[in-house]
Design a protein around this nucleic acid. Sequence first.
DNA 1: AGCTGGCACTCGCGTAGACTGAGTGCCAGC
DNA 2: GCTGGCACTCAGTCTACGCGAGTGCCAGCT
Lengths: 332, 332
Amino acid sequence: MLDDRKSAILRALVERYIETAQPVGSSQIVASSEVGVSSATVRNEMTVLESEGYIVQPHTSAGRIPTEKGYRFFVDNLTGPGELGPSQVRQVRSFFSHAHGELEEMLKSTSRLLSQLTATTAVVVGETGEHAIVRSVQLVGLGTRTVLAVVVMSDGVVLKRVVESPEDLDDERLARATERVAGAVLGYGLHDPQPAAPTGDRSTDALVDLALDAVRHAGEESKRVYVEGASRIADAFDATIQLREILGLLEQQITVVSLLEDVLGRGLTVAIGSETGVAPLANCAVVVAPFAIGGEHAGAIGVLGPARMNYPEALAAVSAVSQRLGRMLTEG
Amino acid sequence: MLDDRKSAILRALVERYIETAQPVGSSQIVASSEVGVSSATVRNEMTVLESEGYIVQPHTSAGRIPTEKGYRFFVDNLTGPGELGPSQVRQVRSFFSHAHGELEEMLKSTSRLLSQLTATTAVVVGETGEHAIVRSVQLVGLGTRTVLAVVVMSDGVVLKRVVESPEDLDDERLARATERVAGAVLGYGLHDPQPAAPTGDRSTDALVDLALDAVRHAGEESKRVYVEGASRIADAFDATIQLREILGLLEQQITVVSLLEDVLGRGLTVAIGSETGVAPLANCAVVVAPFAIGGEHAGAIGVLGPARMNYPEALAAVSAVSQRLGRMLTEG
DNA sequence: AGCTGGCACTCGCGTAGACTGAGTGCCAGC
DNA sequence: GCTGGCACTCAGTCTACGCGAGTGCCAGCT
């Protein structure tokens, strides 16, 4: 643990570095904070901070910059969620008062809101499943043997999946199958469907089974990822190669999902650099919070920025938006 | 119009520049093409080409690089769609043989295919409407007054839209309204719904009208944009500021749609730099082709790359994929 | 008339040296 | 234990300079 003075120095250094993106020297720290000591003393403290791994020198005779450990200590002990500015509060308020009922559109625009609030890339992952129940299911014929199973959940999410029937179909048989599938899933969650009652007709039964299978699988794939403001990450880096990697990563939805879900111990979380578990994010940080619908975990929202991001602001925004989003979705 | 020798020189210059991204000098042209003349002669021709605006010198004593006009002439007169390599042909073939029935998933993966084939950013815009008819419509209650109208089109596209009912609803009324809406749209295109038969109950009639309105609007918003491989554009530029703008543009779906649709005179089209009509694409080019379903315009596919992109390859890929996609979707 | 070899000229780029200034580590003294 | 002072380091900037790729032009050849 660091004593008060070291903490104060580290805080000043991190804050300054976040602001300027330039290595910070001892005299700058004296100038920009209230540690009432000389730069020489600060220097002595800084060598200690460096030997303990909180800061590094990019090269001799340069100032110091924070390490991952330095950011971590800053986030854990030296700062907390800040206050949103009045215009940001207005944005959030107006967003949630104009929002309406359908989950997917809602999550997408939430992502956009978050990106605007923090001027970074925002990511939202929504899952359907646990909390939602099936409100409607319909088998729709597309080709002679191609059927689309369409499921509407109580939260407004629409899932769909193609089913290939082993035999040619007619409207009447489709209707019968739809009825049986509906009986098996209507009113239940996607993960606990009931067994379907047999129709007496073997080929219709086969179709029903296939459709039920499709519905179950649709549930597995129901994690939706919304990335907004990806271009903003470009502001933070000037090596295009690094950018390429980060953007490539954002394109892989699976990676994004696991990034957010892994990090999600409980509540508001920050993952810095290697803590994300993803190599291209070495110089990045993510601030993540889960949101719940009616007390049940329903997804996560987060922002992705450089490791030298504005943590207080990001924490404040992510926290505020996740809470209001959860409340909003719970009330319906 | 350019005489044969100037054309040959311009072609060699453009090809070389596309390959190396470095200004091309007269001696390189002599070395890398079959214009059987000396470099001095090439130089003389190059001053003419420069004065006519096909090429420019970044600075004195550098080689030349093509202008927009130069690329344009190259694309129009000096090259055509190339041949796909054997491994690319294999990729395309395998993709379309494994593809299955549902439009949206199909377009998304087509975009991915195109991006892989050309190692650039790929864009696909799909519209539902003209060719597709309504196969199923369902009003599903979410809240006491919130209804989700879900429409399934014959091409597998599922549209949805929230409708706020003026009065509380029960299942029976919803079912009655669904039936009337179905009667009005089932089997018709989205743009020519029939008037709904009145139910005799005024508030149900109101709901039916709202729902029909929603369905019509859903059709307007049915243009779906799929961008894949956005990160690849990062390879082509080293100014992050420029990258930022391009990425920002790709995030605005409306811009992307109009970009592709504007450019789309007839058939395979190339738009270079300012021809795209979008400022941030000054140093970019897009290669676009429409695709049709059963003879009717159904969307467009394209690739976005730097102006110095490999045109023959891009033209070949876009053309091949658009044709096979259209055929595939038509056969259903 | 058109092409070509030759030549002087231009200028970006890379290297090398000098200077500057921000920043450090250390030490002696308060 | 803090501080002022001092020698030292080194990235960044500037200048100088040579190199080389490339040009434009011209005189001479075909």
